[in-house]
Structures are given as C-alpha cells and as structure tokens.
Design a protein around this nucleic acid. Structure first.
Lengths: 212, 212
DNA sequence: GAAATTACTGGAACACGTTCTCACTAAATC
DNA sequence: GATTTAGTGAGAACGTGTTCCAGTAATTTC
C-alpha cells in the first residue's frame, strides 16, 4: 500500500535546502510587499508567485493557503515589532509601560494600515491550516503585553503573577479587537489609542493614578 | 445627461414593496440557515439565491456583497440575542450581571458555532459596503454590555457614568476577540467564558469582590 | 555516474464572488 | 390602454483561490 502521496506542503518532508529557504523567504517577502501596497485583496497568489519568481502551484508547496501565507507574514511582522519594542525605553510604572506599548503598536499599525488589514484578516480567519502561524501571532501579542511587567516579573509570585498574566491576556484581546476596528471599521488612530489607554486605566485604577 | 444608472442596491431607490420586503427576508433567512449548517464557506451566493427562490444577480440588488448580507444576518442575530438577554433575570450586582451576560453570549455562540463563525467573519471583514450592518452589530454588543448597568444608569452621573461606558466599550472588544478565538482558533467554550469572567474581575476588583 | 525520488514549471480546470447583458414582467405615468 | 420605467430571471463572463496533471529539472540513493 505504498501511496504516491505528492506531499502537500514541503515543511513536513524534511528540512529545507538553501534554495528552498530562499524561495520561502521570497514568497513571504512578496506577500508582505503586496499587502503593504494594497491590503488583503492585493495579495493575489498570482502576483505573489510572479514576484517571488516561482510558479503558482509552487506557492502551495510552501503554504497551504493564502491565509496561511499571510499568517506567516503576520507572525514575522508582529515578532519584529516585539523585538523593536523590547529594545525601547519605557516609562517606569507598569501602567505607563502598558499604555505606551499598546499605543505604539496601534501607531505602527496605522502607519501600515493596508498591511495590518491583511495581517489581521488572515490572523482572524477560520483557516485551520494557518493555525500554527496564527498562534505565533497571538503569542507575540502576549509577549508584547508581557514586556510591561517583564522586569518585575521575577520578584512576584502567586496572586500577583496571576493577575499580571490575566491583564496581559485580556489586553491582548482588546488590542486585537482594536486593530480590527482600525482596519476594518475605519476608526481613527487616536480613537483606537484612546481605547488602549482606557483599557489600561480600567485595569490599573489604583496602583498608578494616571494623569487624567 | 440622464444616465441610465441601473441602481446598484434597491434600498436607496425607495421603500420596498411587500414582495420585496419578503424577498429580502427570505435572502437573510437563507443565508442564516446556510451559515448554521456549514459556516462562512457554506454560504454561497448561488445557494442563497436558490433557497430564497431568486436569481443570483437579484441578491446583489438587495445586498452589495456576501459580507454585506452576512453582516445583516449578524446584526439581526445579535439583536435578537440582546432582546432575549434583556428579558432575563440577572444577578443583582453589576459584576455578576456582566459575567452572566457575557458568558451567556459565549454559550449561545458556541451552540451555534458555525453561524457565529460566519457572522464574526463578516463583521470583522474590511468591507465598506457592509459598514452599516457592522455598526449595528457592534452597537448591539454595546447594548448588551450596557444591560449590566441599565437599572442603575439613571442614578449616576459624571465620573461614574463615564467609567461605566468605558467598561462597556472595552468589554465589547474583549467579547468580540473572544468570539474570534472561539470560532477561528477553536478555543473551547469554557476557556472563552473564563476569559470573560477574568475580564470582568479585573474591571471590578473592589466594588464587588467575587467568589474567587 | 546511473537510477530513482522529489521538487518545480506551465497551464488547464473547477468553484465561488461579482459584474454584465438581455429578454421579460410588473408597476407607474401619460 | 399605450408607454415608459424599475425590477427580475437566466445565464454568460471575469478574476481569484485552489487543485490537478504532464513534463522537466534537481537532488538523493545506490
């Protein structure tokens, strides 16, 4: 019963050769560029293949779907953003840090609204094949919210640590929904930033009274 | 310069006749049924037209896109849900009411996971033509979170009222993102419900110490 | 180095969303 | 009642995501 099995995606077979690694990166790059220029709709598999210099069918050897490809873009993009934010000077108080981080993400997202639109669309699509990359995307969001507490995390334990994790989780959801409002509902940058500040203020009402 | 202008959507022209009203309702009904059975992907304009007993092109005289049609479904569905919830007995304390309301929504959404998937997908899609229905959807969510404070709303003013509105808004975003997790990321019902309870607990940490 | 396996290309093919055309019907206007 | 007008049915047509296939190139295995 030796089935031919023309292996759907490559990744499963074995580790990629240098050429394949480069091809894969070109595909992600092409998708990212197209998304930057025209959003989700502009990322056609036809154009992605052309820009990366491969055949249309080949794209599907590396990514099972358009959403999978864009989810990969989203995972890389938010990951880079997290790296950048981790290297930034931040306010000293946790609430200030949270607000600054979230507002910065929203700002960058607004500057690349079309890319964000594509990325959010893919990250929220019910596409099981994109699941892995989607998880990476969400983990990166969680990692970013975690930056606000990163330095004090070690000193805490028990209830404080749990409360911290809860705040990170919930703020991650507010952020995601905020990005949806920004890209899909045309909300203005400052409106979404205010949402972030409001959320933080509600979470940290006494620890640090903000400059209301 | 009398342009023919084959009027894209009907609604703009004038009020609908009885037949047209019925046709429109059949279309929404058909889309809703198909979504219940197979989610977003199963709602093909072909099948919608067939079930409603109209031509494919006619669907586009009532709705400018599939997302527009499904956004209408979502607006009606969440509206009915809000009506049902408004008639429900609720805990006396605001925090308990919030948690009960949100958990109930998540529960109903999980019971109709495929419909919710379709509805959320349409409500978060960057489709300008669906904008109006999307707003209705979000307003209904806001209306539901508002139910938790409804009875005490009149007695308040100033800072309290503002804080209340902020909580409603932010919880609405948590809910939306939670529904995305439920439908697109395959999260379990109780996981999303716990997210809701956690969010409420974080918002109302002192007013009402929950049974933690 | 030859054989066998695997990957890539190029293009056809299919499903679906969307638009368009045209003939036909029903309703409004004269 | 005749004429115009808006709405509908039926189906062709186009773009896009996805799959499939036959032929070719590259890589692994012997």
């Amino acid at each position: 019963m030796a089935e031919p099995r023309t292996s759907s995606t490559i990744t499963l077979t074995r580790s990629l050769t240098r050429d394949q690694q480069a091809r894969r990166e070109r595909l992600v790059r092409a998708a990212c560029d197209l998304a930057l220029e025209g959003g989700y709709a502009a990322v056609t598999m036809h154009d992605v293949a052309d820009r990366a210099g491969v055949a249309r069918a080949t794209v599907y050897r590396y990514f099972t779907s358009k959403n999978h490809l864009l989810s990969e873009v989203s995972a890389l993009w938010i990951g880079e953003l997290a790296d950048e934010l981790a290297a930034r000077p931040l306010p000293v108080d946790p609430a200030g840090r949270l607000a600054a981080l979230l507002c910065r993400i929203v700002e960058v997202s607004a500057e690349n609204r079309l890319l964000t639109e594509a990325v959010v669309q893919a990250a929220t699509a019910p596409d099981p094949s994109a699941g892995q990359s989607q998880e990476t995307f969400h983990q990166s969001i969680h990692r970013i919210t975690g930056l606000a507490f990163g330095e004090t995390a070690d000193r805490e334990d028990g209830a404080d640590a749990e409360r911290r994790r809860d705040i990170e989780t919930v703020l991650g959801h507010v952020l995601l929904s905020g990005l949806v409002s920004l890209t899909a509902r045309g909300r203005a940058l400052d409106e979404v930033q205010n949402l972030m500040r409001t959320a933080v203020r509600l979470f940290v009402p006494l620890d640090v009274p903000l400059d209301t």
